[in-house]
Amino acid sequence: MKKSLFALMLLSLSIISACSDEEEKPNVPNKPQEEEQQSHENQQESSKSNKENTVASITQAGALKNVKDQLNTDLPITLPKGLPITEGTLLTATTKAEANEVEIVFFESKEYLPINDIKLKQPDRATVIARLLVKQYENADEASEQIAFENFSQKGGQEVDLGSNIKGYQDAGAGSLWTGWNEGRWAVATHTRTDNPEAGVKLAKQAVQFLESHMLPIPKQHGSAQLDVYESGNLIVWQEDKLVYTLDSIKDPLKALEIATAFYH
């Protein structure tokens, strides 16, 4: 009987001691659990930061800033404020810079491709929007010689009403028909074939209407634009002192004008 009573007392003391230890021990997660939780929080923060950086870099403003950063040139180049791209696509580009010349090819892509990404060489990954070439000449006079500026009212030709109180002048030769007019320091002309004369006038009227609400960059001293009905020879060139800007590789003639007007600041 005494042995049983003694065993019962020992058991009671053990239970009381265990309960006391449990109360005194702080409720602290073990170390592996702490590290796992901290790692998860860091991953979430990193993911959030990366997402914000990606969003910033795929906007047009971000892409154009990246183009500027990649150029690594001392030439005082002006870039467009934005470019007309297809809905659902992103703006990107390739850049090439030499001592007195810079080339930028703008692309649109359905996926995010950084500036100068090697995938831009694959035609199925991105589509060319336009090519911009900026070249610096020895002096302003030499730069001016690169501009095919004409005063069409002095040159003469068959007059045509283009609307907005603007007269165009038509000149035909070698199967081509040009309709030219002047807008300030700019000489603008549309090209069609002689067997499709109305197409040239129609495009000229569309261009005049577009330029009623959009401004071409102010050249120093002149600029010229050739707009092609058949989307094969659109060319826009203007001078800024010793610099000459050339826009080409643009299929749609009205889009070529839209891109040029994006350089107006």
Rank of each mutant, 00 (worst) to 15 (best):
S12N: 14
I85V: 06
E142M: 11
I250L: 07
L162W: 05
V128D: 04
Q44R: 09
S144D: 14
G157I: 03
D248M: 05
V188E: 02
K119G: 03
Y245P: 03
L254Q: 06
A172P: 03
F152S: 05
N139V: 10
V67Y: 04
D171L: 14
E35T: 13
Q209V: 05
P197L: 02
G200V: 00
E23I: 10
L254E: 09
F210P: 03
F107Q: 01
A148G: 09
R131M: 13
F263S: 07
H191T: 01
Q209D: 14
Y264R: 09
K220V: 07
V102N: 01
I16S: 09
V134G: 00
A126S: 12
Q70P: 01
M215I: 08
A143D: 05
S49T: 09
I85H: 02
K135T: 15
T73N: 00
L91E: 04
A225G: 13
Q60G: 01
L254T: 11
E22A: 15
V55Y: 06
L216Y: 10
I16C: 13
P217D: 11
G200M: 00
Q136L: 04
K242T: 12
D171E: 07
P217W: 09
G200L: 00
D252E: 09
N139D: 14
A225S: 12
Q43M: 13
H265D: 10
K51L: 15
H222M: 09
G157A: 02
G233D: 12
S176N: 10
L113C: 03
N27V: 11
V102G: 01
T127I: 02
